[in-house]
Design a protein around this nucleic acid. Structure first.
Length: 531
RNA sequence: GGGCUCAUAGCUCAGCUAGGUAGAGCAUCCGGCUUUUAACCGGGCGGUCCAGGGUUCGAAUCCCUGUGAGCCCGCCA
């Protein structure tokens, strides 16, 4: 059984209705690892519904968290003054969003939407300001000693003298820092000193929005007032003595709430670079990831792997394998291929990978690897379809849905080529003849190309291929050597797409002229290394 | 010091909450191919399932111990 169904079954044994929570701090570009948390939860959400249960899926944007430091991607002088202030109260890096938090949240939520994920989005800043946390804040403060004891015992950490389970937000409107020291707490008044602006002042904690619960209390607090019954969390939270452990106990003893079922999920590693961290730059943002990977394939990556196993993600050639694995699951799903080894829960994984619904008919498949070539030959979307149809790789009466699907994939391929593809899979038609040394044999070959291409009956891929092949067998050359000459002249490299159709996609006169360049004596002057 | 995960073919891994004669892809080797974007087609080679113990008629699979590796443990997925 698929892991999402196993978890759903366990949840439904407890009760018929569930609230699944997922939360992310929008302190920087939200990376593909964060995507795992959301997608893992969403798979469980769907599984609960598929088993007849009720499920609500919420996403909490931790926008009231303070800016911890000036991250490497931020302007030092512009953001240094904002350290300590809530992400929802400081400016957007690009100026195009209302707040810093929005800047990172907006593209991430858009990416989620593209993957068919539409959680109920809750904004922590707003929940604090609206008083949603109010009851839990008062309970936590009333139980300060108990909370302190739990955290110190479970996490084996010493809390400072005078610590209270509440971070006051500096009441100076021009400051607003959450980095404050409590001086005294005599209910309902907390006296504090701001570490940022040195203000010493009092706040009435019965007023909403005057501060924030520290993470270890915030987490169980929201379980309590949102009724969370399941929450996946990263392995960092699940380390022994971590916030998961303290949260369990605080939920039960301070908030009288049964904590949710947890699920530890492993990190996604960037191949060869280790875990992703927004702060160190070893990261691929979720939006970037979605630009180079079709949404169903990104879902597939996460859904087919057990959450507890780490994923090595290779944004280079690995993407091609990933997409081809997906296509294989698709063929199995539609009964076009046997479910062999290496394929697990094919039906379920495929269904959970779909952003929306499973199509009744199997989508027309085009080898993704091949698309990499086609996209580079084609000048437009129509060209892509034309090239594929010409080679018989798609039916001439291609349904609109398939046309759309193929072109979406082509767009992903283009993005991948521009940003992550290794150089050796790329090619570009050279406007000027590349310079490389030629000898008499080479010149003869090019001369021969000129003759056969001028005389070929029709400027069509198969005809051209036959003509070129004939020319080089006449000269006693191996196919490899002969075709290499074609690619050098056109692309400036030794390899390229299948020659016939490739040349057919270029104007005949231009091709002939290019070969003539290397056939004549005047071309032999080029002795430099080719570019 | 603690936690989680992993250990199966040369490499990457599937199989492990249905215990019942070890699987795939890649690499390699052989054959084919009017050629190729880590080509394609057919075939071959290849494993004490990390070690030890336990449960069982039967263990890669369940349990215990050990070894090795990776990641995590103020905020951090």
């Amino acid at each position: 059984m698929h892991w999402a169904d196993v978890i759903a079954r366990q949840l439904l044994e407890r009760r018929p209705d569930h609230v699944l929570a997922t939360a992310i701090t929008p302190s920087g570009p939200i990376h593909v690892g964060n995507m795992r948390e959301v997608l893992t939860s969403e798979a469980v959400h769907r599984a609960i519904q598929d088993q007849g249960g009720e499920s609500e899926f919420i996403y909490i944007a931790d926008s009231y968290d303070p800016l911890r430091k000036v991250y490497p991607f931020l302007d030092e002088s512009a953001y240094a003054p904002h350290v300590g202030r809530p992400l929802a109260e400081i400016p957007c890096p690009c100026g195009g969003h209302a707040t810093y938090a929005e800047h990172f949240l907006e593209p991430f939520l858009a990416a989620l939407f593209d993957m068919g994920i539409t959680p109920r989005v809750l904004d922590a800043h707003m929940m604090y300001k609206d008083g949603a946390y109010q009851e839990t804040i008062l309970r936590a403060l009333a139980a300060t000693d108990r909370v302190r004891e739990i955290i110190e015992r479970v996490s084996k950490r010493q809390l400072p003298k005078g610590w209270i389970p509440f971070n006051v937000q500096c009441q100076d409107k021009s400051c607003g820092s959450l980095d404050t020291t409590p001086l005294a707490y005599i209910h309902p008044i907390v006296t504090y000193r701001c570490k940022r602006c040195d203000l010493e002042a009092e706040v009435d904690i019965t007023r909403p929005g005057v501060g924030k619960l520290p993470w270890r209390i915030d987490w169980p607090a929201r379980w309590s007032f949102l009724g969370v019954t399941f929450e996946a969390a990263g392995k960092d939270h699940h380390a022994s003595g971590g916030s998961w452990d303290t949260g369990q106990e605080i939920a039960r003893t301070v908030f009288d709430t049964e904590p949710p079922m947890g699920l530890l999920y492993e990190f996604i590693q960037l191949k060869g670079k280790g875990a992703m961290h927004s702060s160190t730059g070893t990261t691929v943002s979720a939006e970037d990831m979605l630009r180079i990977t079709p949404p169903e394939v990104l879902r597939f990556l996460i859904v087919r792997n057990d959450p507890r196993k780490h994923i090595d993600f290779d944004p280079g050639l690995g993407i091609l394998n990933l997409v081809e694995d997906y296509d294989r699951f698709e063929r199995v799903h539609y009964g076009k291929e046997e479910e062999g080894t290496g394929i697990k829960d094919a039906e379920r994984v495929y269904a959970l990978s779909q952003p929306h619904r499973v199509r009744a008919q199997m989508p027309v498949q085009v080898s993704y690897r091949h698309l990499v070539t086609v996209v580079q030959m084609a000048e437009s979307d129509d060209d892509v379809i034309h090239i594929l149809a010409r080679a018989g790789e798609i039916p001439s009466d291609l349904p609109d849905a398939d046309r759309k699907h193929i072109l979406e994939r082509a767009a992903h391929v283009r993005e991948w080529l521009a940003r992550f593809a290794p150089e050796d899979v790329k090619f570009q038609v050279q406007k000027e003849p590349p310079v490389f040394p030629t000898d008499a044999d080479d010149r003869m070959l090019y001369s021969r190309f000129v003759d056969v291409l001028e005389s070929v009956a029709e400027w069509r891929g198969d005809k051209i291929h036959d003509a070129v092949y004939e020319a080089l067998t006449d000269l006693g050359l191996k196919a490899g050597e002969g075709f290499r000459a074609v690619y050098r002249a056109i692309l400036g490299k030794d390899r390229g797409p299948r020659a016939g159709h490739f040349l057919a996609s270029l104007p005949r006169d231009w091709v002939v002229e290019r070969f003539r360049h290397y056939a004549g004596e005047e071309a032999t002057t080029g002795t430099q290394e080719r570019a």
